[in-house]
Design a protein around this nucleic acid. Sequence first.
DNA 1: TTTAGGG
DNA 2: CCCTAAA
Length: 705
Amino acid sequence: MVLQKRLDYGFNGYQVPHIPRATRSVRRRGIIKRKADGNGTCPFDLLATVAGKLLGEGESSPDSTGSVKGKEKGAIVKDEKVKEAEDKSLKEKSYTEGCYERGFFISELVSQAPVVNRSLSELPHVQNDTISRPASASMSSDCSEKLLFAKQFVNGESSEEHENFCSKTEREASGCGVFSSCTLDTENDKQMKIELSNKAKVLTDKGTAISSSKFPDVWDKKPSTLVTSDENVKLSLSTYPAPSRSFPVIRNDVKLAYKDDDENSGCTQPSTPNKASGAAPRVRDRPIKKLLASKYWVENLKSDDEGHANSGGKTMHVYYNRNIGYKRDGYKQQRSQRDFPFKKRKLFKCGSFSNSDGEMSTDGISSSPKNDLHGNASGSSKASSGGCAAVGTSVFSGGRPFLRPGDSHVKFRIKSFKVPELFVDIPENATIGSLKRTVMEAVTAILGGGLRIGVVFQGKKVRDDNKTLLQTGISHDYKLDALGFSLEPNPVQTSQPLGQDCRSCVLPYETPQPLTSIYVSRCPSPSTVIHTGIHQGRSDDHTGTSLSTFLESDHESAPSPHYAALEKISANSRALVPLTAVNAEALSAVPLRKPKRSEATQRRIRRPFSVSEVEALVQAVEKLGTGRWRDVKLRSFDNAKHRTYVDLKDKWKTLVHTARISPQQRRGEPVPQELLDRVLTAHAYWSQQQAKQQMKQPSETYLLL
DNA sequence: TTTAGGG
DNA sequence: CCCTAAA
């Protein structure tokens, strides 16, 4: 759906602002302190990385021409259309074969209609396919959960690969996995879809593309390739919806993570390929590294991939099951264990907010990260027995309240925030750079807007904002009860973009469901940290989602790379931390709430106007003129609840501006020149009309006087 | 509530 | 997009 439309418009290029407006705003508001320069210094590069892999993998693609397209926008589409058919078939074939070769099960499902909002949980195995439509191949195994999973969507078809790290049996036997924490978010159909296009090339090779250690190579060799079609690659970075029986799930976060491992793997944008070697990497990799637990992690991650992608690989499967030491490969297993210590330590570093890099301004909140990672034994067991109905979004808290000598303050420590599912829909010919920015924007949007904090205490959601902590039961002396916070989308509903054709619509949180979860741990009284809390999920009022149970322990189990990956991703969400964490730190009267903005006045998420919307706007304005935004709204955006007349007015303002600047300076999804021309024409016309009125009015009044 | 503009 | 003065 998306693609077609775009093709119709015949443009291809896409430029993303270096620093998304939204980001700046957010930062300005103090939500995000860290600067996100389009240079790859931002933590979100991690995400981008995944895409990078996908893109780089296409070496063997049939339609790979090996050349790199220029930067010109538009005009590239024509030929592409012609080629599309054959390319498609080729790819399809290629992909299919690949899947079969690997013993994947391929299913075809057709969902022409944009079923974006479909509950993922409805179709455990094809959740994302639904979104992409036509032919999608989905691999699945007996194991209903996919711990790892990555996919590639091309031309509506999607190639994906799911990797299971455990079998049903395993899961059952082990009860709850220890890594529920790895879940970014599950049972959440909230997704973010981003679209943009660029010139970098992507290969739609087989599903294999995504996994396996060969990435680095491919990547390095071909930072960017060529594509002939305007296909989109969709990356779904999210947790797999937990089955009814929900188990902790680990997603392909891992994949995101490992890529950056290669110090110099060219996660760099096409334009800066050489940065790979030398000191340069530091600039970019550093942040990533911080997030990434360590190389060890990476290794493991890779291993995982290999192990699954290549059946014969000598990789190990890392299971994060504390109860059962399942091993498929002794060697690897050993290695994994060997690395544990490191991982743990590293994990702390990256997971803890105490990173003193100051970038996230979350310092000071946590003082003893290490302890935090080590769950309290009793707490752990308790947790596991609590039945992990892990739905994904859950919150925990644990630990003992920090008792202060004089007063009765409660300190909270939020261990981590998780970023909800992120859905990226990007043309194959998009550049890595734009992909990065896109993901960045997506994440920023999630973090910066439409979120509110939910508080769960003792398994119940605390809705009364006016209650005091004490009244609620949260006091400095409460036992091991869990206190949780959850990030939930604002009640603000989003409507579907104009009509059916939400081509490049950003699918924000259409439904109010918890987006993220936060792990909180009570600030440890001195050295004891317990962050194993269990909360029986309870349905949230209108959100219909439940805060699920979550358990976490790190005693025997080594932190999983997934976790690390998650942490990395989560790191970004640290942007959110300040709100709560800082408060806690400040230890103001009410540690949990930020009276002003955090709760009620959430900044709306950014929703770039699609071309279709622009067209509608232009058309309306041409007819109604400027200055009648309400009418414009009613006329063309009546059912786009998220577009207010002020928005339309603002959009028009920017459109006029856009039309006046050189194409090179434009950002975001390119607007057809034709439309821009109309904008200028209409603007000129109505300005003139207005001027006439101005001229007329004074005289009239004058005459009247 | 709408407009109109600056931020 | 947000915030607001004005209308």
